[in-house]
Design a protein around this nucleic acid. Structure first.
Lengths: 328, 328
DNA sequence: CTGAAAGCGCTTACAG
DNA sequence: CTGAAAGCGCTTACAG
């Protein structure tokens, strides 16, 4: 059964005890320079590598972060994935990637994370029942909802300032002279779509104006179909605030198909600032989500909680930036 | 130190031995119905979950697949990621996600995979030095290069039929009357770009025609810049064969910017059939990579090798499909 | 079918 | 600073 070489083998070759070998590889343990050198030389010769499983078993902690994602089709998320992987790598953590199809994360997916006793969890673009979330708390595993809030719960979340972004976008459009605006929502049960709408609505109402609301689903196809349907049945608004960029691109393509001029006939504003929004075919005005800072906030919190678990809940909001391009 | 509940706890409550508890959770082990029921009841009550680390330590095998990716910015790869995650999940495997920035995978990234003693590895959109690849073989860890071949090596690879696709695309363009064609390559050291060019070149030459070659990098920006540069300095070819879709979209946007009509003035063909290529703004003719089948081939091979390691090398090619849209 | 016991490869008090 | 030993939570021959 024994096939790989272990600390005992190295110890024998180095002429020291197995404990000493262990100490060389365990950060914070003390070993004399001489011992360290002997061990490293022997390890090198044998190609020794400490077994993470034995380590985790004895320390009861891992260097694995569970990253749960849903919408990898939205180009926003590959960026998020890249940033998290890079950021955690710096601190020696690896990523256990879980992809879920449903809005609500399945118990099955969670089991995996618990079985591997992950050091922390990031949930992206999805929610989970409070029950399930609590099972992480019970195991003192820190958890962050990234770009989502779980309503009526006390879990840590990191989002963009969706509410004030919604307000700023309304202010901007009204200043530009828009009167009859429309909001195209993402999945309506997401906090992001709700908050963007709420901020927007607030300001529109303050100005004694109205806006129409159309419900969509955060996908390109959703944006495309929604816009087509609008054009077939109703008068076009003077501006669309679309809950994310990928939908906004769909909206623009639908407008293009009907030969509607943007921004001359309709203005379009998205949200996220995905790479494509700056493509010449779109040049979309949007609200940039500060992914880097959001990731940093998430990682900082998780690292702190891994050292000393408190279970603190907070809804962190990181300020995004308005990016004006050619669609407004 | 002991915090979580273990098989011993369950055994005590169920009134059986710890071995029996273990057998209930170990597939293939034999336990009487009665024992099983007692154990499951006790486990349920205590919230027991077998510790994966202890399991892996004793069995010397894991249920983790290392998935190494580079180009997550190319929408082709999120699709690949989703499929792999779904497919491996079916067989009870989890994904350790490694993201690399460089074309050649770093030893550091590999260390992680070896430390976690992954059951298998998929390398996507990147290569690695033969040295590093051999370290997997030394540990009998099966390895598949997905969408890449490692030249002069004997590792398993799964690709699309790039060579014959290149040929078919040349035949198609020539049949359509194109005479002066151009190939815009991806990163030139990738097998995919080389083979697509090779097939293309072969047929063009057979027909006593020529084509120009421009070197690019598999990104949208690369395609955009390359096309702009061409238009500023030289006569436009009658058709572009672009090594992947995302670059082809860049090419199209550059043409649009210069008000060149596609396909009237220039034809454009991409490769991959990413979601965006069917968007109304593009409607790109392309060659579909059969991701699902490619993933299936990869998973099947890995599962077989995990049971009985042979280290067989083979360059599997899965046939793609030509998709004609409006750019040709 | 079941239990007692050895052992996977580590970390970590405990002596020296 | 170093070594001998216990123990993390499992699997798995070995008896019964």
């Amino acid at each position: 059964m024994k096939s790989t070489i272990n600390a005992k083998d190295v110890a024998k070759l180095a002429g020291v005890s197995q404990s000493s070998v262990s100490r060389v590889y365990f950060e914070g343990a003390k070993v004399s320079k001489k011992t360290r050198q002997k061990v490293l030389a022997a390890a090198e010769e044998l190609g020794y590598r400490p077994n993470e499983f034995a380590r985790s078993l004895i320390t009861n902690r891992t260097k694995i972060i569970g990253l749960v994602m849903k919408g990898v089709q939205n180009p926003f998320y590959p960026q998020v994935l890249t940033q998290f992987t890079a950021s955690f790598k710096k601190f020696g953590y690896s990523i256990l990637f879980v992809h879920t199809n449903s809005d609500e994360i399945q118990t099955e997916d969670i089991e995996t994370l618990l079985n591997y006793n992950v050091a922390g969890v990031v949930i992206t673009d999805a929610t989970m029942s409070l029950n399930v979330a609590e099972s992480f708390r019970a195991n003192q595993i820190p958890l962050v909802f990234f770009n989502r809030k779980l309503s009526r719960s006390n879990f840590y979340s990191v989002c963009c300032n969706n509410l004030s972004a919604g307000r700023a976008i309304a202010e901007y459009l009204i200043a530009k002279g828009s009167k009859d605006m429309a909001y195209i929502s993402g999945n309506e049960n997401t906090s992001t779509s709700q908050e963007r709408e709420e901020g927007f609505s607030e300001v529109v109402t303050q100005h004694n104006l109205n806006f129409k609301k159309y419900s969509s689903d955060y996908t390109y196809e959703g944006g495309y179909k929604t816009a087509l349907a609008i054009m077939e049945e109703e008068a076009l608004p003077s501006a669309f605030f679309v809950a994310n960029d990928i939908m906004a691109l769909g909206v623009m393509d639908a407008l293009r198909k009907k030969e509607i001029q943007v921004p001359a006939q309709v203005k379009v504003i998205g949200f996220d600032n995905i790479g494509m929004s700056s493509w010449p075919a779109y040049e979309l005005t949007t609200w940039e989500q500060p992914i880097e800072k959001m990731v940093e906030e998430t990682v900082t919190y998780l690292l702190a909680e891994m050292i000393d678990y408190t279970g603190t809940a907070e809804a962190v909001e990181v300020d995004g930036v308005f990016i004006e391009r050619k669609t407004t």
